[in-house]
């Protein structure tokens, strides 16, 4: 891992397709068995009592509460926004979620729904989830979302270009989107399930960070394999090493497939013991999830009252 090299050493990496390829292919390989074993072993940490209470509140505050359906309506998005601001109407000490995450055409509705709160509006863009369209269409998609008030943009990379080895094309697209974002923070989605190998995920992570990603994000939630402890651990190693080398801190967002408090806490343990406590903040770590929030709320009620309430004691939106 190039952790001790001076920060300026990365400036010429993106000079051409071949320098970029040499750099990405020069990153240390990932041993799949070892990576998964490490993720599994951190999954055995036992988080109880005060630590659990801390972790649940932290996890709630890190949720990007998401609806990304063809059937999304203003009513659905408004309900989601209300839930993000007051996740548990019976307990106002419950933290707000970090953001709501919607399609670009729902950004206006979402902004109204969370107005006056700290909840951000994130919008997927760039022809989410496939990303298979022309760059100017993707950029228009981004600009529309930003113009409507999106605080954050979740873009997808061109996996086809990545798998074809055209790294500079992927890089150029990310930088173009970053520019179109203006002041909005950019999350770059790799769709790790389609990149398939851990070596690819490490390369994509560095590629995204070099191109100016504010967050690197596992997946869209629309494919068979989404966030896993192992791919998230790998991306946490990448942001850790990137900061060590460049001084720039980048966030991580696992998305899709994280449904229980137990799972979420395992991810927080990964953050804590890999990237470190600097990432234990919703500015630097998010969960892309929808059903997770209700499980976190039920666990929170259980810790507070000592008994399980059940699904009718949290809101269904």
């Amino acid at each position: 891992m190039p952790t001790t090299a001076p920060a300026h050493s990365l400036s010429d990496v993106t000079a051409s397709d071949s320098t970029l390829r040499r750099f990405l292919h020069g990153l240390p390989g990932v041993d799949a068995v070892g990576l998964e074993a490490r993720a599994a072993s951190l999954g055995t940490r036992s988080i109880k009592t005060t630590a659990k209470a801390y972790a649940i509140d932290l996890a709630i505050s890190m949720v990007d509460l998401t609806t990304l359906e063809g059937a999304d309506t203003p009513g659905k998005v408004r309900a989601l926004g209300a839930k993000a601001v007051h996740p548990d109407p019976t307990d106002r000490t419950t933290p707000m979620t970090a953001a709501v995450c919607v399609y670009p055409d729902m950004v206006t509705v979402a902004k109204e729904a969370v107005a006056g709160s700290d909840v951000k509006v994130a919008s997927v863009a760039t022809a989410f989830p496939a990303g298979r369209t022309a760059l100017d269409v993707k950029l228009a998609d981004v600009r529309e979302a930003v113009a409507a008030g999106a605080d954050e943009i979740d873009m997808v990379i061109d996996r086809g270009a990545f798998l074809a080895g055209r790294y500079l094309k992927v890089y150029d697209e990310i930088t173009a989107v970053k520019e179109a974002c203006g002041g909005a923070r950019l999350k770059v989605i790799f769709e790790t399930g389609e990149l398939s190998t851990y070596d690819n995920i490490r390369r994509a992570s560095w590629l995204g960070m070099l191109a100016g990603a504010d967050f690197i994000k596992t997946s869209t939630g629309k494919v068979a394999v989404n966030a896993t402890p192992a791919n998230t651990l790998l991306m946490l190693e990448a942001v850790r090493d990137f900061r060590a080398q460049t001084g720039v801190q980048v966030g991580v967002k696992p998305a899709g497939g994280i449904r229980t408090s137990k799972d979420a806490i395992k991810f927080l343990v990964l953050v804590n013991e890999t990237a470190g406590e600097d990432w234990l903040d919703n500015h630097w770590f998010r969960f892309g999830a929808s059903s997770l929030l209700n499980d976190l709320l039920m666990q929170r009620q259980k810790l507070a009252t000592g008994r399980y309430s059940g699904p009718d004691y949290v809101t269904v939106d």
Partner: peptide
């Protein structure tokens, strides 16, 4: 990490 202190 001190912020995420694992309880016994």
């Amino acid at each position: 990490a001190s912020v995420f202190e694992y309880a016994p």
